[in-house]
């Protein structure tokens, strides 16, 4: 894993690695990738992936409103909000 890959992955995950720990973390990541890379030796041609242990179809909901709005509680849980909105540092589109 080169430094650039690590930076890209960190950015995608919105995480930054502590500089003091970065060497160790990268080393750990490489060890884990080596572990999962061992799967390459298994022949899986013509095998469908199993994304869920339940091979069933989804149950769906009816198009009938059942609102469970807890606006005040939702806004209360936010680190920053006013009476109507969640607030974040201003975004410039």
């Amino acid at each position: 894993m080169d430094q650039e890959t690590v930076s890209t992955i960190c950015y995608l995950a919105r995480l930054e690695i502590d500089k003091n720990k970065s060497k160790k973390i990268i080393q750990d990541l490489e060890t884990i990738i080596e572990l999962i890379g061992s799967l390459q030796t298994i022949d899986t041609s013509s095998i469908d992936p199993l994304y869920s242990p339940l091979e069933m179809t989804a149950l769906t909901h009816e198009d009938i409103e059942n609102s469970d709005n807890k606006k005040e509680k939702f806004l209360e849980n936010a680190a920053l909000s006013n009476e109507d909105y969640f607030l974040v540092p201003r975004v410039v589109e």
């Binding site: 095998i47 992936p49 994304y51």
Partner: peptide, 9 residues
């Protein structure tokens, strides 16, 4: 994807 295929195996 590979892992999900092995999962089926």
């Amino acid at each position: 994807k590979k892992a999900q295929q092995v999962r089926r195996l």
